[in-house]
């Protein structure tokens, strides 16, 4: 048994576009231990979201996507699983939180109905009543007042911050071992974002859930992550303990990143010069199995 929840080994991704292959990810290696919080940072378009979607198995269904490499989840090679087997992991063992909470919830159904659907992934036969109780408890656990009223509401009747908490509660409802958060709450007010992140941190700590936290906000990384990976143009250019990377960045791109975002709560990364050659130069060897070694 390995203590790693997620292990990505030499992940490559390219998209077929107009008969040509456009490479998006280059030999990405990344690992997350049980209960560990890992941040994946990088500018927009660097390949963060596609990495998350590949882990969840959402990109494999795309005809234009060519994926190679190995992904091990709780020691199991996901490539060896059938589509149904991968499908079974989604929403149960791994779940995801999206950027804009309000548009990620379905406008045509109440929170309660959507929560029921989520809980059904973990317990297919769960009754509406039991689902309501469990959902209410989850919402109360994330400091939401009047959970019953929230469950009876539609997403557009709640604030962005409330929807964000609903999403976090849903994502953790089936006690997954891996939570992927793709730039959560970027669309939210900064103070609201900070509050919900704090709550989320408490919850994942209590549950021992491992988190892959995708962001381009260095301030959030500092607050939240144990370790950091820096992605630049589809390559991991730097990795290490958060403190080490933030105080002693080795790679030019990371330094540029840090210099560009001195604010704790900055919304995004300011312009970074196009010093591609230096940035793209690998800083460490990520050959096969390099990540697997402790």
């Amino acid at each position: 048994m390995t203590a790693l929840v997620l292990e990505i080994i030499n992940l490559n991704l390219s998209f077929a576009r107009h008969g040509e292959q456009t490479a998006v990810l280059h030999d990405v290696c990344l690992s997350i231990a049980r209960g560990e919080r890992v941040a994946l940072v990088g500018e927009s378009g660097s390949g963060k979201s596609v990495t998350a979607r590949i882990v969840l198995g959402l990109l494999g269904e795309l005809a234009s996507a060519r994926i190679t490499g190995e992904i091990r989840f709780e020691g199991q090679d996901l490539g060896a699983l059938s589509p149904a087997g991968r499908h079974a992991l989604r929403g149960t063992k791994m779940s995801m939180i999206f950027q804009d909470p309000t548009s990620s919830l379905n406008p045509a159904y109440t929170i309660g109905a959507q929560f029921h659907e989520v809980l059904r992934r973990g317990a297919p036969k769960i009754s509406a009543k039991a689902a309501k109780e469990r959902a209410g408890a989850m919402l109360a656990g994330i400091s939401m007042d009047q959970p019953d009223r929230v469950l009876g509401s539609y997403p557009f009747q709640l604030s962005g911050g409330m929807n964000q908490r609903v999403m976090i509660a849903m994502a953790l409802a089936n006690t997954p071992s891996l939570l992927i958060a793709d730039e959560p709450g970027t669309a939210l007010d900064v103070t609201v974002q900070a509050q919900t992140l704090k709550l989320m941190r408490e919850l994942v700590e209590d549950n021992g859930t491992a988190v892959l936290f995708i962001t381009h906000n260095i301030g959030v990384v500092r607050e939240f992550a144990d370790r950091v990976y820096v992605l630049y143009r589809g390559r991991i250019v730097e990795k290490g303990a958060t403190h080490a990377v933030l105080t002693d960045a080795r790679h030019p791109y990371t330094r540029a990143l840090l210099a560009a975002v001195p604010r704790l709560t900055g919304g995004g990364i300011a312009d970074i010069g196009e010093e591609t050659d230096v940035f793209a130069a690998p800083m460490f060897d990520h050959g096969p199995g390099a990540e697997a070694r402790p």
Binding site: L89, R90, S104, L105, P107
Partner: peptide
């Protein structure tokens, strides 16, 4: 293409249910 469909997929809701409920109703 809406985020809530991707969210439904990420939770592994059955594709038929996504079509008939999540995408159809709106």
């Amino acid at each position: 293409d809406k985020p809530y469909i991707e969210m439904a997929r990420s939770y592994g809701f059955p594709e038929k249910r996504i079509a008939n409920r999540y995408a159809f109703r709106p």
